[in-house]
Amino acid sequence: MAREKRPDDPRRFLDPAVLSRVGRLDLRARQVVEGYLTGLHASPFFGHSVEFVQHREYTPGDDIRHLDWKVWSKSDRFYIKQYEAETNLRSTLLVDCSASMSYGDAKWNKREYACTAAACLAHLLIGQQDSVGMMAHDADMRQVVPAQSSARHLEVILGALESARPGNATNILGLLRRAAENIPQRGLVVLFSDLLVDRPALFQGLKMLRQRKHDVLVFHVLDAEEIDFNFRGTTRFEGMEAPDQLLCDPQALRDAYKEVVNEYLTEVRRGCTKIGADYLLCRTDDPLDTILNKYLTFRSDPRAARARSGSGQG
């Protein structure tokens, strides 16, 4: 288990249990992504592949290697053979490193959960020859790792995840705007966050990514206590990102709290669905391997992908 490794070892984020469960799966982009490498994902560019697409007349500057000589011999005209190119996926992992992500058990808090999930996905993507970049943020961007697909790049990502310590509050809109601006090509953007942010700003940022044709995937990481609120006894709750404090009997507030949380989750889920982003709620007490396995299996289902694609486009 990752949690049994040294706390400062970045490879602790690669949970063998998770990797063993999801290693045989692919993370497929549910829409075309731009890339250069042959891979699982369809490219908007024509390239070298076996899948013929069309002919077009030769124009000066075209590579003459693509001339279809058989057509020239028959029609004495120059046509270029065009094939569908298969390219790699450019993925960007956005990991929330705000102060609120440190809530939970010191060894297994939301940040640890998010980093582990991000590392596993990075390992998976790199394993399928896709390029993976990473951004760790709080109010500002703390770590930025450009997307690459080399095997060594995984170590870079893990090191960046480790070094991205929880800090200030989250500026979600600024983060997403910057991510949208810094990712030149359309690709997969995966956000790991507890989303304890301003919802309109969140939705605006996600919409911005979607408008740039990114496939957006949101991992909503929450601690089980943040959902169930199983506290007893008089407790003073102190805000982790804000100076708010509240002394109360948590059991008296439990029902109302859960009601508010449910409303919040519903709002977030509906907002993501409306924008076309995949939304996955992850409780820190949920086994990550199960979550990822379930999600990736679901994502690889073509019918579900079509359905989601349709709804997402809309």
Partner: peptide, 14 residues
């Protein structure tokens, strides 16, 4: 009382 750092203060206050 117990002190409890809390991330979701927004919900708690609400």
């Amino acid at each position: 009382y117990k002190r409890q750092p809390w991330a979701a203060m927004e919900f708690l206050l609400a």
